[in-house]
Amino acid sequence: MSKHTVTMTVNGTKYTREIESRLLLVHFIREDLELTGTHIGCDTTNCGACTVLMDGFTVKSCTVFAMTANGKSIETIEGVAQNGALHPLQEGFWEKHGLQCGYCTPGMIMSAKHLLSNNPNPTEDEIRWGLSGNLCRCTGYNKIVEAVQYAAEKMSAEQEQDA
C-alpha cells in the first residue's frame, strides 16, 4: 500500500495528512477532515452530490483522488457562509424552498456558485444546463432555478452597491 503526504487548503485552512494513494477526495473531506456536508450519491459521476470547488472549478470529489488535489484549494459547503452570514445562494435556497431532503443541496449550491461566478446573470435555460451535472430527486428543480435567480439578483445588486 502506498502512503503519501497530502497538503491542501480546505475552506481557507491548510491541512496536511498521511493518506493511502487510493483515497478519494470525498472520503478525505468527509472522513479525514470530518466535513460531512459533502455527500456521496453514486459511483459513476452522475449525481453530483459530492460536488466541491477545486481551485474555483466544480469537481465531483468521488471521482478525484485526494492526491490529485495535493497543493490545491478546496471549497466545500461548510465554507460558503461567511462570518455566520448565509451566502445569497443559501438564502435563495431557503427563501424559495429550493431543497427538501437536503442531500443534494450542498453539491447543488457549489455548482450554482460556480455557475454564477462565470455567468452572473444566467437565463433560466442557462441555469438548468449549468446545474445538469447535479441530480435532485425531491424538488422537481423549479424552485432550485428560482433560488439561483434570487441569488443572482441579490449578488448583482450587492455588486452595484459596492461599485
Binding site: 459521476t45 453530483g48 460536488t51 477545486m54 472549478f57 466544480t58 469537481v59 465531483k60 471521482t63 478525484v64 455548482s111 460556480h114 455557475l115 444546463w129 449549468g130 446545474l131 445538469s132 451535472g133 447535479n134
Partner: peptide, 12 residues
Amino acid sequence: ATVIADPVVRNM
C-alpha cells in the same frame, strides 16, 4: 464541448 458528459465532469 457542450454535450460531453455534464458541466461538472467537464471541469476535470
